[in-house]
Design a protein around this nucleic acid. Structure first.
Length: 220
DNA sequence: GACCAGGCACATC
DNA sequence: GATGTGCATGGT
């Protein structure tokens, strides 16, 4: 318990020393962060950036404009992010939720206590646990640890938990062993994505290019 | 041309 | 509860 906690903190320290604070989420506004969280579902960030740039170019990267924009047009604008029909629909579901429940105000939405807001977000079609937690943490500054494919892959491969662990189990693991610090949760996830993006994923257990093998070699 | 990317909903067993 | 499938573009 204590050892795991120390190890997780140590891992973060090594990553922080190597990369500095990653300054996440990339985005100029809370609304942009939320949109990015939906657009990046199972999609590389580069493709999302193009879609966001297009929304900016067409001056619709705000709740009011997007709420009024027909879904078909939205789908065309976000084409580069992949799954564009599905994602346009998901964005519309979120906007309907935002307007019906909070009059279109993110400030109002984020006055809601974290656990309650998380529940509400999960009821929006198209917002699953990772997207909800990304919204809560990166747009709302609420201490929810974001779990993604890299987090599961890297840490299960190093036996912190079985690879079959569910999202909630993995999240509970990190939140049990780390203090509920928004800045720490913010950067920890960002660091994990960074090593996930930059290092290889060979299947050999002793591959020194694999993220945590690489980390442990630094901590020795 | 195969494989992957910062998931999610839905069907089926 | 676990497992499989569709959704889609763009980079390697």
């Amino acid at each position: 318990m204590k050892i795991t906690s120390r190890l997780l903190k140590q891992i973060y320290k090594v990553l922080y020393r190597k990369h500095g604070h990653r300054r996440w989420w990339p985005g100029d506004s809370r609304f942009e962060i939320i949109l990015g969280a939906i657009l990046t579902q199972n999609t590389s960030w580069k493709n999302v950036e193009k879609a966001i740039a297009k929304l900016k170019l067409h001056r619709v990267l705000n709740a009011d404009a997007l709420y009024r924009l027909p879904e078909k047009k939205l789908a065309r604008l976000i084409r580069s992010a992949g799954y564009f029909n599905i994602k346009a629909n998901r964005i519309k579901h979120f906007l309907n939720f935002l307007y019906e429940k909070y009059g279109g105000s993110l400030s109002k939405m984020f006055t809601r206590p974290g656990p309650l807001l998380r529940q509400e977000l999960l009821e929006v079609k198209g917002i699953g646990p990772e997207t909800a937690d990304s919204i809560l943490l990166y747009a709302g500054n609420k201490p929810f640890f974001v779990v993604d494919a890299y987090t599961k892959r890297i840490f299960s491969r190093h036996h912190f938990f079985p690879h079959t662990a569910s999202y909630d189990e993995v999240q509970a693991f990190f939140m049990k062993h780390l203090p509920p610090d928004v800045s720490l949760f913010n950067d920890y996830h960002a660091q994990i994505v960074h090593i996930g993006n930059t290092l290889c994923f060979k299947r050999e257990p002793d591959c020194n290019s694999c993220p945590l093998n690489f980390l442990f070699s630094l901590t020795k």
